[in-house]
Amino acid sequence: MLRVIAAVLTLTLGACAPAPAHMAASDASEVLERFAAGAAPMDVCTPGGRAQLRGAVRAYGAEMARAGLTWPQVPGPGVDPASLKRMDIAVMIAFGAGFVEGSDFRGHARPMIGRMTLTQWPEIRGMRAAARTSCAQVAALQQAAARFVIESERYESMRGEGGEGVERQAMMLLRARREMETLAAQSGLSVGAAGS
C-alpha cells in the first residue's frame, strides 16, 4: 500500500515538475558539487532551476550507471558512513523536498532513495509540502538537513570509539541539529526527534 501511495504522489507531483534540462556529465558533476556546497548556480525555487538540478541528477546518474555504479550511495547497513559524499546526501534530501523526482534516478537507486528518505530520515518529512509555500526557507533547510545527516552518520560511526574526536563530532552534530531545527521552525516544519 505504501508503494502505491508513493507512486501516486510521485506521479501527481511529477506532473507539475519542469522537464529536466539536458547537460553533459562533466557539467552535471560541477552543478551537483556546487549545489551540495550551498553555492548552486541555479535557484531551485524556479521551474528553470529545478529543471537544471533534475537534469544534473539524470546526467550524473547515467554516467555512474555507465561506470557500473549505483548513485547516489544510500546510507544503511554495510555502507561506511565515511564513504558518503555530501553531494549524495544533498541530492537525497532534495528528493525529499521535491526539488528532484524519483524518475530522475536510475536503476537500484530509484526504489532505494524513496524508501530511505521516507523511513530513515523522519526529519525531512513535510519538506515537499512546505516547499510549495515557502520554497526559499525549504531550500535553506535542505542544505542544513544535508549537513545534519552527514554529521549524524559520522557520529554514529565514531560513537563506540570514545575520546576527543567523538566529543568534537557530538558538538558538530549538535550545531547542525540546532541549525536545522531553527530553519525548520522558520519554515513551519517540525523536525521531530532528529538525531536522538
Rank of each mutant, 00 (worst) to 15 (best):
A7L: 14
E164C: 00
A65Y: 02
R86L: 14
L174S: 11
R50N: 04
R115T: 12
D27E: 15
G68H: 04
E63Y: 04
G14M: 11
T70S: 12
A37T: 06
L189Y: 04
R58K: 07
P81W: 10
E33A: 14
C45Y: 05
A6I: 13
Q186I: 04
M172V: 09
L173Q: 11
T46C: 07
A94K: 06
Q137D: 07
Q186K: 15
M64G: 00
M42K: 02
D88I: 01
P111R: 01
A28T: 10
P77M: 10
Q169H: 07
I5Q: 06
A40T: 00
I124H: 07
A40M: 06
A184H: 02
G48P: 00
R54D: 00
Q143Y: 02
L2N: 15
V8P: 05
Q137A: 11
A15E: 04
I89S: 01
H22V: 12
A94S: 14
A24K: 11
M127F: 04
R106L: 13
F35A: 06
M23Q: 14
A140K: 13
E153M: 09
L2W: 14
A25D: 13
R132M: 10
K85G: 05
I113M: 06
G162D: 06
Y155F: 15
R177D: 13
R159M: 09
C135F: 01
C45A: 01
S103G: 15
R154T: 09
Q120M: 14
M87I: 08
L2V: 13
E30I: 08
A40I: 03
L189K: 01
W71E: 05
L84D: 09
M112H: 00
E30M: 04
V79Q: 06
M1G: 12
A6C: 07
G14S: 07
V91M: 03
A145M: 12
G126F: 02
R54H: 02
A25S: 15
L189N: 02
M180D: 01
S83L: 14
M1D: 02
A193G: 15
I5D: 01
V8T: 13
R147K: 11
S190F: 10
A24V: 11
W121K: 05
T10G: 14
S196E: 13
A25R: 11
S103V: 12
A65Q: 11
A109D: 02
E156K: 10
R106C: 04
A131C: 02
A36I: 05
E179C: 08
T117A: 12
S190L: 13
A130M: 08
A62M: 03
W121N: 05
R154W: 05
A40R: 05
V149S: 08
S196P: 13
G192K: 06
A130R: 15
L11K: 15
H22C: 03
L189F: 01
A194T: 14
P122H: 10
W71R: 12
Q52H: 04
A17Q: 12
R159Y: 03
S190Y: 09
R86F: 03
F95L: 14
R110S: 00
T117C: 09
M87D: 07
Q73I: 08
